[in-house]
């Protein structure tokens, strides 16, 4: 069976991509940039951060570009006044949700949230910040998780599950109380199953998981999942 192609319009430009491509990849392949945060090439899309939302002509809803496959005749709008405002809202809510103080963060200058705030012009947060105190776990020999900085994008969970195949990370609780946990909510140092591969730190978009005494600009590797998959599939 040959794979067909789909033709659609993105921001008024007609593009043709393989069937089943996501809107995000269709846009990227045609030089149109859509901001992303929880999305990471090589991992199952999560669709949670909502920064990649796009409008589709003819429907009142917004769709996450990372998780929405293209359809023939679709007219996608990636930039509009509304989308700009909503993307700013995403960043503001993330910044207000936990304790994000860039000046004292290990991820300063290597942080995707910080970069998005800059690009989108989020020069202040309209909500009162929620100065909560979340648990920090530094019991592992090299990896540290600081949940104060976590934005619950679940990249770490997905890379641990899908690429490393270990799945020691997961979520507990729900809603605003959601937390990343290690094994069955144990201390990281007590985990028998963590392979200490460090992929979680490589993909963390912020400074929530990092390698002790390593500069985050060196640790981070957004392409790790994509790279490993490409080698495996050779």
């Amino acid at each position: 069976m040959s794979i067909g192609t789909t033709t659609l319009k993105i921001d008024g430009i007609e593009v043709t991509v393989p069937e089943g491509t996501t809107i995000l990849n269709a846009a990227k392949a045609n030089g149109i940039n859509i901001p992303t945060l929880c999305y990471l090439e090589g991992l199952t899309p999560w669709g949670g951060c909502r920064i990649c939302m796009v409008e589709i002509h003819g429907t009142p809803k917004l769709f996450p570009a990372c998780a929405t496959p293209v359809n023939t005749g679709m007219e996608v709008i990636t930039q509009s006044e509304k989308l700009r405002e909503y993307r700013k809202m995403v960043v503001q809510l993330l910044l207000s949700e936990r304790t994000h103080v860039c000046s004292v963060c290990v991820a300063n200058n290597a942080c995707e949230l910080q970069k998005l705030a800059d690009e989108l012009g989020v020069d202040h947060v309209m909500f009162e910040r929620n100065w909560t105190s979340q648990e920090i776990d530094s019991t592992h020999k090299s990896l540290v998780i600081d949940r104060n900085r976590c934005i619950l994008c679940t990249r770490c969970i997905r890379v641990c599950d899908e690429i490393e195949g270990v799945h020691i990370l997961d979520l507990k609780n729900r809603g605003k109380d959601s937390q990343i946990i290690i094994d069955l909510d144990q201390k990281w140092g007590d985990s028998d199953y963590c392979t200490s591969c460090g992929k979680c730190a490589k993909v963390c978009p912020v400074g929530a998981i990092y390698v002790e005494s390593e500069a985050l600009s060196e640790t981070k590797d957004k392409h790790i999942a994509e790279f490993i998959l490409s080698r495996r599939n050779r």
């Binding site: 809202m89 809510l93 993330l94 207000s96 949700e97 809603g175 605003k176």
Partner: peptide
């Protein structure tokens, strides 16, 4: 807690 608008 999955998506930002509803959670945060």
């Amino acid at each position: 807690g999955r998506c930002n608008p509803c959670r945060a």
